[in-house]
Structures are given as structure tokens and as C-alpha cells.
Design a binder for these strands. Structure first.
Lengths: 135, 135
DNA sequence: ATTGACCTTATAGTAGCTTTATAGTTTTAA
DNA sequence: TTAAAACTATAAAGCTACTATAAGGTCAAT
């Protein structure tokens, strides 16, 4: 399978596949005589794993870490679970932060309507004066 | 006021101030004979505005847009409100996406405990097999 | 006179790609 | 058969919003 086919199969760009190879997430495949990369099913599975991790919001470094655990199949999987726990709490704190932000933005927005001039805009005034309740 | 004092006053790094100047968000200040930048109170206010916008999650481009509105004080402020509305819905969709993600991660995590080997790890199996309920 | 704190510019690094440039190869259509 | 279209290759730059590093000039104090 060539790079374009693999890319289409998994819904990524060919450059992204080369990028993962360069980052050490995808093993370098064999080459044809003309230099074209040839991929096996293993590569497809590995790429699918990477993409699912990315969809879960894991960084390339975290994916790399997971892959290193997979290379030692008889170790306890404590570290895998810990990585996921950390990521979950990271996601949760992002949610909390964004919810606080939303509140601030909504209250800022409520301080204006569309019938004013920029000079009297409640939003701009709110930002300029720093009427921003922390937290 | 020199750059270091302005930086300390607003809790940013001196490089950040130069960066904003370079990006056209902060007007170039006058210089002393030795080339040192000299800031006025106006610069302080402008920088404070930028920082508050950043805390609200606005991009530098959006801040630039807001500043351009401020240059026309007698225009209606419809565009300001629209910008904020867009940003609010952006924040809301981020929250929604993260909440869905959290759900996925928690259910993935529930498929394992710490007493297994990597080979039998429910988390890794869940990612590899793609047991990832969309949405 | 020299140390330390401050200032200057320019450049590179961060994350995770995407885009562009340049060039070689293969397939398809005329 | 030839020429265009589609694919592949590498390398380098661009994106966001800074942060960090390098190499150097300026100033106050010791």
C-alpha cells in the first residue's frame, strides 16, 4: 500500500503520515525501487492508534509514551492508567476554566446592545475598565 | 517609564511587550538617546486592554479588530457585539466538545484497573480496537 | 574599573500539523 | 507516443502566542 492509499483509508493527509514517521511515532516503511514508501497492515493499525489517541486529545509525547509501554507487554499497566487519569483531570480543568470564561463573556456581553456607538459600547468599556470578575 | 517597569506593572515579560509592538497591537513608543523605549500612560492602558482581551481568550487578530473599531468611535458597535457573540459560541462549542471527550475518556478508563499487564490493559485495548463511541 | 542590572536586536524553539517549492515517477488520455 | 494529470519525494517555511537564547550596548553602584 502506498502513502496516498493509507492516507485516504484513515482520513489523514500524506504529509501527516510522513510527519508521524519523522517524529518517530510510525516506523519507517520499506521503499520501492523508486523510493516510494510501502505500508503494511501493521502500519495501518499503528496509524489508526495514533489518530484515535489524537482524537482523545493526547499529545504526540503521550502517544509515544503509550507506545513505549506496548513494547513491554508484561509490565503492569499502572502507568497507562495513570497517564489517562492525568489526561482526564487535564480535560476537566480545561472544562472548568472554559465555563468560568463563558460566564465572564456572557456578563460582558450583557452590558451592551447593538444600538450604541463604539464610544458608548458596554463591551469595550467593560474590557477597558477591567470589570472582569476573576475566577 | 521604561519597558521593564511597564512589564512589571502589568505582569508580562518585556519580550511580550516588544512582541505586541512588532505585531502592531502596541504603538511604537518614543526612544531615549540610547535607544531605550519610553512608555506613556496611554501605552499602559493599551497594554492592559490587550492583556484583558487575552485573558478572555481573544486572539491577537480579534484584538486588532477591536482596536480598529475603537479608532472609529462614532460607528455603531454592532461588530463588537458580533465578535463577542462569535467568541462566546466558540467557547461553548469547545466546552461541549471537551465534555464529550471527558465522557469517552472516563468510559475508556473504566475498562481497566491497575492490576493487569500491559498486554491485557483495557485502556490500550479500547484505543486499539477503536471502541470509541463517537460524539 | 568592574560587576550587575537593565536595555537593544535577531534568531530559534514550542505543538501539530499545513503549505509551498522543487523535482522525479507513474498512469491515463489524446 | 506523447503530453498532461496524478502521484511520490525532500526540504523549508508558515501558523499562534509567546518564550528562550545569543550577543551585545548602557547605566548605576562599588
Amino acid at each position: 500500500m502506498r502513502i496516498g492509499q493509507l492516507a485516504q483509508l484513515l482520513g489523514v493527509e500524506t504529509q501527516t503520515i510522513r510527519f508521524y514517521e519523522q517524529q518517530g511515532l510510525l516506523p519507517p516503511p520499506d521503499r520501492q525501487d523508486n523510493g516510494y514508501r510501502v505500508y503494511t497492515e501493521k502500519h495501518g493499525e499503528r496509524l489508526a492508534f495514533i489518530r484515535r489517541c489524537r482524537i482523545l486529545g493526547l499529545s504526540l509525547a503521550e502517544i509515544h509514551e503509550l507506545q513505549s509501554y506496548q513494547d513491554d507487554p508484561h509490565q503492569p499497566c499502572t502507568a497507562v492508567n495513570a497517564l489517562l487519569d492525568d489526561h482526564i483531570s487535564h480535560v476537566r480543568s480545561q472544562i472548568t476554566a472554559l465555563q468560568a470564561l463563558e460566564k465572564q463573556l456572557v456578563s460582558l456581553r450583557a452590558s451592551c446592545n447593538d444600538d450604541r456607538e463604539v464610544e458608548a459600547c458596554g463591551v469595550l468599556a467593560g474590557i477597558s475598565e477591567g470589570n472582569m470578575h476573576q475566577q
